[in-house]
Each structure stands twice: as C-alpha cells, then as structure tokens.
Design a protein around this nucleic acid. Structure first.
Lengths: 215, 215
DNA sequence: ACATGCATTGAACAGTGGGTCAATAGACGA
DNA sequence: TCGTCTATTGACCCACTGTTCAATGCATGT
C-alpha cells in the first residue's frame, strides 16, 4: 500500500535528512539504503528511485555535509577588532570551538576524508571544500602577515592559512577521540599564545551576528 | 588438500601481514576475512582458527599499526642541536616528513580513528597511543618553553605538545587528500617560522641513526 | 607402524545489502 | 468518469560476509 506522494525536491530532502541522521549515528558503514529508508519511513525501493545508486546518495550527503560544516562565518565582534592578528586568532579560536562542539559531524567528515583516498568523486569534493576553507583563512592570514612583518618573517599567507586549518582540525580530532586526556582550553590558550601576541582579548559576550560569509 | 603446517606465531604474523596489505589497499571496509586469507594464500577458515573473531583480527592489526606508526624516534643529529627550540622544531619537521610519506598508513590510521567513536576497544587503543605520542613531544616542548620563556609566555608544555601533534597530523591529512593544491614545503617552512625563531637550520644529510626511542 | 592431536580445508548456513522489477495507488488532465 | 503518468511498494535475485563444523591431512610420540 503506497503512501502519500511528494514532490521530487521534498522527497530528496527528506531522504537526505534521514541519511544524515543514520550516518551521524553509525558512520558511513552504517549508511545502508535500507537503514535510510527505515529512518525516513519509506521503502528502500523508493530511496533507490530518487537516488539511482547508493553512491549518489553518499555523494549528495557529502555535499550537504560540506556546505554546512566548512563554511567560515565571522561575527561582527571579530571583524571590529583593530588588530589583524587578533582577528586571525579570534577566527581560529571560534572555529576550534565550533567544530569541537560537533563531534558527530566532524567524525563523519573524517570518514569521508579517508574514503576520499579510494573514491575519486569524494576526493575532489573534499579537496575543493578544504581549499575554499583555507582560502577563507588566507585573507585573514594575509592581513596578519602584512601588519606584523617581523613576527611572520618569511611566512606566506598560504602557509599560515594551512597551519590555521591544521590547528583547528587537530583540535577537533584530538578532542574527538581522546577527550579524557585532552584539555581543549589548554590547547586553545597555547595556540593563541603561539600564534599571536599575548595581548588584547576578544569580547566573548554579546550577540554573535553572522556578518561575513566567505565561501 | 591441506597445506603445510606452521607455528602459531608464524601464522599469526603471516596473517597480520596480509591483513595490513589488504587494509592498506581497500581500507577497513575491504578488510574481509576472505580477502585476508586469499592474500595470505590460506583458507578463510584458517584465519578464523587463529583469530577467533574478525574483531580480533581488526584489533590485532590496529596494535601493529600503532606500534609502527606513532613511535617517536629521534636521530642523534637532532639531539645534538644546542638549542631546545631547534630540537623541538626539528622533531616536528621530521615527523611531518615521515608521516606525509606514508599516506596509506596514515589513511588507515584515520579510519581506525573514526571507527573509535563507535568501537570501545579501538577508541582506548587509539587514545593511549595518541597520549604517548603527545607525551614524547612533551619532553621536547618542556625544554623549549624553559629555554625561551619570553617566546612561550603562558604556554604549557602539554598544550605545546598537543599543538605539535596537530601540526603533524594536519600536514599529513591535508597532504593526503589535497595533494594538488597543498604545498608541503611551504607548510613546513611556515610551521617552522611560526613555532621557532628563524635561525639555525638542522643538518639534513648524513646517517640518521635512531637514538632515542620514546614509547 | 600406529594412534593421537591439531592445523587446515572447504562446504554449508544465516544474515545483510545493493539493485531490479512487476504491480499498485494516487494525482491530474481530458 | 476514465485514461495516463509516475511515485511508491514489496517481493525477489544475487553477491558477499561472518561463522560453524565435519572431514582430512600432517606431524609427533610411543
């Protein structure tokens, strides 16, 4: 007994939402067509009707994951900071916080990351997403390098941006699996001291209005 | 027609070697009992005779992987460097090189890492391995902090060690999937400049004798 | 030479998962 | 009201995987 019909768009959305829920719990391994269908309360045949191959579903989920995870959104508070290095450090700090608080999502991302070495399509998607994310940091890094030439002698904005991404990912990863022995606050403080000067603090209170979105 | 017999130890070793080969190529997903048996030219029944459950095989492979991957071995050349910060930076640089050159192994490690969030045994093994690795860096970090108190004001050795691990992992990871747009040399140079002073270079030529092994 | 023990094999089984497909029900226009 | 189109279902097929197990061959002690 078939259920209600729905528009193409709505169904795909529904299925993808279910797919994310399934993958967030059981990883890419647990992401089976039948599990997704069950979660969405649909027949597994229907899932394969809208996504012709399982691979399509996996790839579509990756798109959704990347779009919501590696998008740098900087608050006005941070943008108003007078010193470029302070801005850079503040953005890094913000992202460390954000990604550490979504271990499920980060774990899933890392699974895709590992999958990328065997799956061409996944690899290119992850690669471009990373490049964009790094590029978003590059603008901040560039300002920081120009403003503090002595501090960053010989450091390129690209290299500095890559380091920022490493610090952020490294923080999220270490927190993900080693939460018992890993002290996030200490890590964050140390990163801040190593990268920036020990000066001005960022105002942490107040509304965090999304201001600049760097794709 | 059964083949030759072998000692318990030798068979386990043979099977684990095959398991690593299989997993290095196809990931943990591809690590099936039958695939391992085929690679070792044994029957799949025999694999399950020596490792009663597949899980045992997976766990044993993780042990082997961790033992050979996250073991910090520092050359005499590095240990002879007069400045503690130079030593620290040199060790980081060495590890970035080493792990970037073994993408297969690192990928497999990350797969286990992700698996850890769902598998208790894996999680604890990965966690302790990471802790030890970080602890090995801690000694170098401690010296660096003490020798350059102004440079690392307010930075704890633990935090600095965690940052070092992040930089190393981040480098390996970014190189792993994004090798087209990611410039390892630039990354390494930037990390060196950010962490240390821009001074003395490490002698890169000459025999690299393993000297200190920090478990 | 013979018996005992155990490593080794491959058949067999149950469970799972991707993919196909004929049948069906719901929407919609004529 | 009827016909057409298609979203939807569930049965079915097939390949694969973990696991068990009876049979078998090899080695070793007596």
């Amino acid at each position: 007994m078939p259920g209600q019909k729905a528009s193409e768009e709505a169904r795909r959305e529904q299925i993808l939402t279910a797919a994310y829920a399934v993958a967030a719990r059981g990883g890419i391994d647990g992401l089976t067509v039948r599990a997704v269908a069950a979660r969405a309360k649909l027949s597994h045949g229907l899932v394969l009707f809208h996504f012709r191959r399982k691979d399509e579903l996996v790839t579509a989920l990756l798109d959704r994951l990347l779009a919501t995870t590696f998008l740098l959104t900087v608050s006005d508070d941070v943008l108003r900071l007078p010193d470029a290095l302070d801005r850079f450090v503040a953005v890094i700090r913000q992202e460390m916080d954000r990604l550490s608080q979504e271990p499920r999502r980060m774990r899933l991302f890392f699974e895709y990351w590992a999958l990328g070495s065997r799956h061409r399509g996944v690899r290119t998607k992850v690669s471009t997403a990373l490049s964009r994310y790094r590029a978003a940091f590059r603008t901040f890094a560039e300002d920081a390098v120009q403003t503090h030439p002595a501090r960053f002698a010989g450091v390129t904005p690209e290299g500095l941006a890559a380091i920022a991404v490493s610090l952020i990912n490294g923080c999220a990863v270490q927190a993900m699996v080693d939460s018992e022995h890993f002290d996030i606050a200490e890590y964050r403080a140390s990163a801040q001291r190593v990268m920036g000067h020990s000066g001005a603090r960022v105002a942490r209170r107040g509304p965090r209005v999304a201001a600049a979105t760097l794709a």
